[in-house]
Design a protein around this nucleic acid. Structure first.
Lengths: 256, 256
DNA sequence: ACCTGAACACCGTTCAAGT
DNA sequence: ACCTGAACACCGTTCAAGT
C-alpha cells in the first residue's frame, strides 16, 4: 500500500527547472539543488557571503536598507556581480529568510508533553522573530519549503503525530500554528500597545468613538487599550493547543 | 468603579498631531479626524477619488502596480497633487486597506451560537481577502485601528463577551483570530498546494529529502504534499474556537 | 570565462516657478 | 491659494565592452 520511501516514482516528470519558476515554489526549491554548484574557478564572491552580508544589513539597518546597491557596497563588489549568484532580489529574500529561521533546533525541556513542547518552541520562535524584526517583515511564505523550514515542519509533525493526529491533520495543525506565530509578530511590528504612548493614545481613540455604534469599545476602552501582542499571542497559542488536544481526543486512533 | 462612558479624562494630554506620527498608530488615526476637512475651495481631486482609483488599480493590476505615478495617470493629475491629500504612500496604503475591509458587516445566519457566528465571519473575511489578493498582500497591521477594523473588533468583542469572556480576554481572542485569518491568506498567496502542479512538485521535494533527517516528511510525502491553505485554515479555525470555548468554561463568570 | 561600468526604466518625494 | 513641471535621490535589472 505504501510507496518505497526514498525513490520518486519513475513516471513523474521532473520539475521544469527553467528560469521561469517562481522563487519559493516547490519546483524552484527542487531546481536549485540540482545545479552542479559549478566550481569552475575559485570564486571570490559566494552565495554564503552574500547571505551573511544581507543578514547583517537586515539586522543593523532594517529591511528597507536591504538593497542590491547597499549589499554590493558592503561586499565591495558591483551590483551586477550579485546577479551571478542570485537571479532576483526575490530569490535573495527567500533564501535569506529560510536561513534566518535556523533556530527552532534548540531542544525544548524534557519531561513535558507534546503541548508543552509545542508551546515552548512557539515562544522561542516568536522571541527569535522579535529579536530580528527585519526578518519578520520579510516573511512571506515563500520560505515554507526551504531546508530550515522543512526541519521545523518535521519537528512539529513529530510532536503532533506522536500525540495521535493523522499526518494530514498534523501537517495542517503545524502549519496553522506557524502561521499564527508569524502573523502575531508581523502584524504588530512597531505598533504594539506595550508601548505606553501608543496605549495611551489607543485609550483616547477608543473613548472618543460613537458609543451607540461601538458600545463595548467605548465602555471598556481602558482595558482594551492595554491589550497588546503579548496577550494576543498567549491567548491564541493556548487556544490553538487546547483545540488540537480536543481534536486528538475526538479522533482517537483514526487514520486519515 | 467604572469611568464615565464617553468622556475622555480631562487631564489626558492630546496626541501630538504633528507630521511625525507614524501612519497606523493610534495618534495618527486620532489626528487625522481632527483636521477640519478644509472645504476652502471646491476641490476637483478628493481623497475618496484617490482611494477609489487605488482600489481598482490594486484589483486589476496587483499590488506592485499601485504606484503614485500609475495613480496620478489613472486620475489624470500629477503625482505632486496626490501629496496634497496624503502625506505618504504608507498613509495611502493604511487608509486603503482599512477601507477595503468593510465587509465583515454581512450578518451571519441567526440560530447559531457565538462559535458558529465567529466561524462564519472568519470564512467570509477569508473569502473576501482571497478575492482581493492585492489587499491581502498590503495588510500590515497598520489598519488595525481604522474605522472598519474597529467595527469588526466591536462585532467580535460582542460575540466573545456575550459568550462569557472578560473584555481583556475577548479582545485578545478577537485579535488572535484576525491574525490567524489574515496570516493564513497572506502566507499562502500564489503558492498553494491546491495548485496541482505545485502539489506534484511538493511530493517530489518531500520524497527526495534525507529520510533519516526528515523521516515523517519522506514517509508521508504523498499526503503532506496535498495539505494546502484550505486545510490549514479550517483546522486552525476550529482549534482556535474550540480553545476559546474551553477557556470560557474554565473562566466561568470571572472578571478580568 | 569572468567581471565591470554604465545605462535603462522605473520608484517616492520635493519644490521653485507658474497662474 | 492652488497646481504644475521638473528635478532629486534613490530602486532592480541588464548588457555591451573590457580583461
Amino acid at each position: 500500500m505504501r510507496e518505497p520511501m526514498t525513490t520518486a516514482g519513475a513516471g513523474d516528470p521532473p520539475p521544469e527547472s527553467g528560469p521561469g519558476t517562481r522563487p519559493g515554489s516547490a519546483a524552484w526549491w527542487l531546481a536549485r539543488e540540482q545545479e552542479p554548484a559549478r566550481p569552475r574557478r575559485r570564486r571570490s564572491l559566494t552565495l554564503e557571503a552574500i547571505l551573511d552580508a544581507s543578514m547583517t544589513l537586515l539586522d543593523t539597518r532594517g529591511a528597507a536598507a536591504l538593497t542590491m546597491r547597499n549589499l554590493a557596497e558592503a561586499l565591495g563588489c558591483t551590483q551586477a556581480s550579485l546577479y551571478r549568484h542570485v537571479r532576483n532580489r526575490d530569490e535573495l529574500v527567500t533564501l535569506l529568510v529560510d536561513r534566518a529561521l535556523g533556530v527552532a533546533s534548540a531542544a525544548p525541556p524534557e519531561g513535558t508533553d507534546w503541548a508543552g513542547k509545542a508551546a515552548w518552541s512557539a515562544r522561542l520562535f516568536r522571541a527569535h522573530l522579535l529579536r530580528h524584526p527585519g526578518v519578520a517583515s520579510l516573511l512571506r511564505g515563500t520560505e515554507r519549503l526551504g531546508p530550515n523550514s522543512l526541519a521545523g515542519m518535521e519537528y512539529a509533525l513529530g510532536l503532533f503525530v506522536g500525540a495521535g493526529l493523522s499526518p494530514r491533520l498534523a501537517a495542517a495543525a503545524a502549519s496553522s500554528l506557524a502561521t499564527f506565530v508569524i502573523g502575531s509578530v508581523r502584524f504588530n511590528l512597531g505598533l504594539d500597545a506595550s508601548d505606553s504612548e501608543e496605549s495611551r493614545h489607543r485609550r483616547l481613540l477608543y473613548r472618543s468613538r460613537d458609543a451607540t455604534a461601538l458600545p463595548l469599545l467605548v465602555r471598556h476602552a481602558d482595558v482594551l487599550a492595554e491589550v497588546g501582542s503579548d496577550d494576543e499571542f498567549e491567548v491564541g497559542l493556548t487556544a490553538l493547543l487546547t483545540g488540537f488536544r480536543v481534536l486528538i481526543e475526538q479522533e482517537g486512533g483514526a487514520r486519515d
